[in-house]
Each structure stands twice: as C-alpha cells, then as structure tokens.
Amino acid sequence: MEQENQNLQDDVTETATEGQEVQAEETTDPRSREELLAEIERLAAEAEDHKTRYLRAQADFDNFRRRSRQEKEEFAAYANVSLIEELLPVLDTFEMALKTSEESDIKTLLSGVEMVFRQLTTALEKNGLAPIEAVGQPFDPNFHEGVMQVQSDEHPSNTVVMELRKGYRVKDKVVRPSMVQVSQ
C-alpha cells in the first residue's frame, strides 16, 4: 500500500513538473494571445478548405465511377449493333429465298442458299471469325475436341483424321473447338 502511495505521489510530481514546463513554454513564446488566436483561426480555415476540397474530389470520383459504369453498360448493350447491321442483308436474302422456294426449282433454291452462306461467312469474317484448321494437324486440346480415336496407316499418331464439326476462333480466342477424330 505504501508503495502505491509513493508511486501516486511520483506521478503527481511528474505531472506538476510537466505543467510548469508547459507554462514556461507559454510564457517564453514572443507572440501575444491575439496573434496565437489569429494563427489558430487561420489554421482552422485552412483545415476547412482542405476538407471541402477533399469532399469535392470524393464526389467527383464517385461521379466518374458512376459515369464509367453507365458507359460500360451502354457499350455492352450496343456492342453487337455493327454485326447485326452486317447480318441484316443475309436475313433479307433468306427471306427472299423462302418466298421464291414455292415457285422455283431445287437448283434455284440451292443457289440462293449458297448466296446466303457466302454473305453470312463474309459478314462473320469481317468481324474477326476464322475457322480452325483441323484435318492433318497434330491434335491440340486448345483447338480440337477429340471425340473418337481411329486406326490410321496414312496419318501419324495423334493427328486429326476427320473433322466432325468445324471449329471457330475470333482473333486468338477459341469460340468453339473443332470436333475431331484422332489417329492412334
């Protein structure tokens, strides 16, 4: 108990000494009370100005983020418009072929379907679609989907022998792998 009282007295003595040092510092400052108050007022105004600027910058950033999100959503909604515009003539040709199919022979209908196929292929190629070469190529799981293995004396092992479904890519991205038979 005596030890606690001694510690408490030491703390009070230290606090009193610190208070005297603070008073000594206050009395040694050459500025008057009015000058110090003016300095505090100036610093408070400066702090308020910084706070206002910060809040404006935060609001500007929030607005920028909202506008960016809206632009991104709008871009995604209308990204395919150019492709659709290129496919509309293909749709028109299909429509004409269906109307004339009742009155024409098979040869005319076949030439119409070939025309539609060419138009469709051209429109898709303009937009970056390219077929994946498969037959005779080494099997690559990145481009080919192997569904069967067959014995082949003509082709080396692990080579694509037959393409069952054509694969496509857009630039470097595979849209659909080729479905293939692979030699053993």
Rank of each mutant, 00 (worst) to 15 (best):
Glu26Pro: 03
Glu95Cys: 13
Phe94Val: 13
Leu120Arg: 07
Arg53Gln: 09
Lys107Trp: 09
Phe94Gln: 11
Gln181Cys: 06
Gln137Val: 03
Thr27His: 09
Gln119Val: 02
Thr122Arg: 10
Pro89Ser: 06
Glu46Ile: 00
Gln149Asn: 06
Met148Tyr: 08
Asp153Lys: 11
Glu26Tyr: 14
Ile84Ser: 04
Arg169Thr: 09
Leu129Val: 08
Leu98Asp: 15
Glu14Tyr: 12
Ser68Gln: 15
Glu35Ala: 03
Val182Asn: 00
Gln184Ser: 08
Ala57Gln: 09
Leu110Ser: 06
Ile40Val: 04
Ser68Phe: 14
Met96Lys: 15
His144Glu: 00
Leu36Gln: 11
Glu102Leu: 15
Glu86Trp: 03
Pro156Asn: 11
Asp11Ile: 14
Asp11Met: 14
Arg118Asp: 15
Ala44Thr: 05
Glu48Phe: 01
Lys72Thr: 14
Lys126Ser: 08
Glu163Ala: 07
Asp140Val: 08
Thr13Pro: 01
Glu95Trp: 10
Thr17Leu: 09
Glu46Asn: 02
Arg118Met: 11
Glu35Val: 00
Leu98Ser: 13
Glu74Ala: 14
Thr27Phe: 15
Glu163Phe: 00
Glu74His: 02
Gly146Glu: 13
Phe143Trp: 12
Ile84Val: 10
Ala77Val: 01
Pro89Val: 02
Leu8Arg: 11
Pro141Ala: 06
Lys72Glu: 12
Tyr54Ser: 09
Ser101Gln: 11
Thr13Ala: 13
Val175Glu: 04
Gln149Val: 06
Met96Leu: 15
Asn63Arg: 10
Thr108Cys: 09
Leu109Ile: 10
Val90Asn: 01
Glu14Ala: 08
Ala57His: 02
Glu41Ser: 00
Glu35Leu: 03
Val182Ile: 05
Lys173Gln: 12
Ala57Pro: 01
Val81Asp: 06
Glu125Cys: 05
Leu43Arg: 00
Thr28Cys: 08
Thr28Val: 07
Leu55Pro: 01
Phe61Thr: 12
Lys99Thr: 12
Ala77Ser: 08
Ser157Asn: 08
Thr27Asn: 10
Val147Leu: 04
Ile132Pro: 02
Val147Gln: 05
Thr122Leu: 05
Asp153Tyr: 07
Val147Asn: 02
Arg53Val: 02
Glu154Ile: 08
Phe139Cys: 03
His50Ile: 05
Gln149Glu: 07
His144Met: 03
Arg69Gln: 12
Gln149Gly: 07
Ser32Trp: 01
His155Arg: 08
Tyr168Leu: 10
Phe75Pro: 10
